[in-house]
Design a binder for these strands. Structure first.
Length: 418
DNA sequence: TCTGGGGTCCTAGGACCC
DNA sequence: TCTGGGGTCCTAGGACCC
């Protein structure tokens, strides 16, 4: 018996979610755009073949005549989150040892004989496609880093039919000889440049580097990556989500805004962040607010950052009022801001540390928040909102082509023709 | 002439991830 | 008109303590 990690990753995940509900999109080039319909954050193989790059600004790309037929969607996170949950459920039936790593990626810890593991991986691939309607690739390796690499290799090589097993040292030696070290999980542009300066370009060359040198150039993180690539597990599966340290809500505005509208925007972000905080059962002791002018526009630049220590809370009314005040005290008259956000930090479990002299009644606050969350769940987030958020949402991002929330909103169910 | 040494906590910045 | 929005971890250096 050997132990192995599987990394299961949804192919073009957001696009696949849109496709799952519209068979006409099969085989067609599809892209999903970031907030504000800004850049491409997911693209199908067909779109990639037409030359659409990840992160490319769509307003420029779409002018290219060859991209006229590309179907595009504004991102629809409630749908993607729900599809992710379905994917997780299918995979959890294969192993209880499962770690959701991102919205479209999950690590599984498995045991079995070498051939057995490969067969199991094929079954995972088929079941996720059959039940959750998401095509995936599965990478197998003795460490998480190798499983990631195996997964990427499966993505690059369609003839592997979605599954790649790098469990054996022989299989790895062959691949590592040519695999660029810059494509290893954990090695970004900075480390790649440092390695290139030492003449190191492939994984094999990286493994030949003395550990002490790797440690000096890339700290313990790089040293860990090197060990993992040698087949020594350093990164365990984490079965429970780590305790959060920050919760943030930030946005680029649909169009730049000034003065009062920016106060309303950060107040709305504070509400959004507070909502997430409550869902996590946490309270924050620190709030910070930022506003920034656009990077791509002429005109005066300004960015402001303000923060405050607060009594532990997840109260939307309080947090939105503080956020609006911080903005008001720090923003500059006549400057149009393009981007802003609220970050809540210094988190602790809600109700754990009672302030000795709380200025608000925590019981009343928590009841009020429960009521607000209940109304929002039923009638949408905008049904009930603090006055500080205003009523016009002049900051709201553009969403030019939003698909339906097929699975999470009763009003947007898929309609079947009989 | 000699000018401690070790520890903790905090923050800013760097690097990386999806 | 239109260029994302989240996160984490590590290190270095300063402040402070005894």
């Amino acid at each position: 018996m050997t132990a192995a990690f599987f990394l299961v990753d949804g192919n073009s995940f957001y696009c696949s979610c849109e496709r799952a509900f519209d068979p006409k999109l099969r085989g067609k080039p599809v892209v999903v755009l970031s907030n504000n319909d800004g850049c491409v954050i997911s693209r199908t193989a067909e779109a990639k073949a037409l030359g659409v790059a990840m992160g490319e600004p769509w307003h420029l790309a779409r002018r290219r005549p060859e991209l006229a037929a590309v179907r595009w969607f504004s991102s629809n996170y409630p749908l993607y989150a729900d599809m992710s949950r379905r994917m997780f459920e299918v995979m959890a039936s294969f192993s209880p040892d499962i770690e959701p790593y991102s919205i479209d990626e999950m690590f599984l810890s498995m045991e079995g004989e070498a051939g057995e593991l490969l067969e199991t991986a094929k079954s995972v691939h088929e079941e996720v496609l059959r039940v959750a309607k998401i095509p995936t690739c599965v990478g197998i390796g003795p460490t998480k880093t190798i499983a990631k690499l195996a997964n990427k290799h499966a993505k690059n090589s369609p003839d592997l039919r979605g599954v790649c097993d790098l469990g054996s040292p022989e299989a790895r030696t062959e691949l590592f000889r040519t695999w660029p070290v810059s494509e290893v999980w954990g090695i970004g542009p900075r480390s790649s440049a440092k390695l290139a300066a030492h003449g190191v370009r492939t994984v094999a060359e990286f493994l030949d580097m003395p550990s002490a040198l790797v440690r000096r150039e890339m700290s313990v993180v790089g040293a860990r990556t090197q060990d993992e690539l040698r087949g020594v597990p350093c990164l365990p599966l984490s079965l429970s989500p780590p305790t959060r340290k920050n919760v943030a809500a930030t946005r680029t505005f649909g169009t730049p805004i000034e003065g009062r509208a920016t106060e309303e925007a950060v107040a709305a972000f504070a509400c959004r962040a507070a909502e997430r905080l409550r869902k996590l059962g946490l309270a924050a002791r620190h709030i910070s607010v930022f506003l920034r002018t656009g990077e791509f526009r002429e005109g005066p630049r300004h960015s402001c950052l303000a923060s405050a220590a607060i009594e532990p809370t997840a109260d939307s009314l309080f947090l939105s009022a503080v956020a609006a005040r911080l903005a008001r005290e720090n923003l500059r008259e006549g400057i149009a801001y393009a981007k802003g956000g609220v970050m809540l930090g210094d988190l602790s479990p809600a109700g754990e540390t009672a302030d000795l002299l709380p200025s608000r009644d925590p019981v009343r606050s928590s009841r009020l928040m429960q009521a607000i969350d209940a109304v929002s769940a039923r009638h949408g987030r905008n049904a009930l909102r603090p006055a500080a958020c205003g009523t016009t949402d002049r900051w709201a991002p553009r969403q030019g082509n939003l698909g339906n929330r097929f699975t999470t909103d009763i009003r947007e169910l898929l309609k079947a023709k009989a």
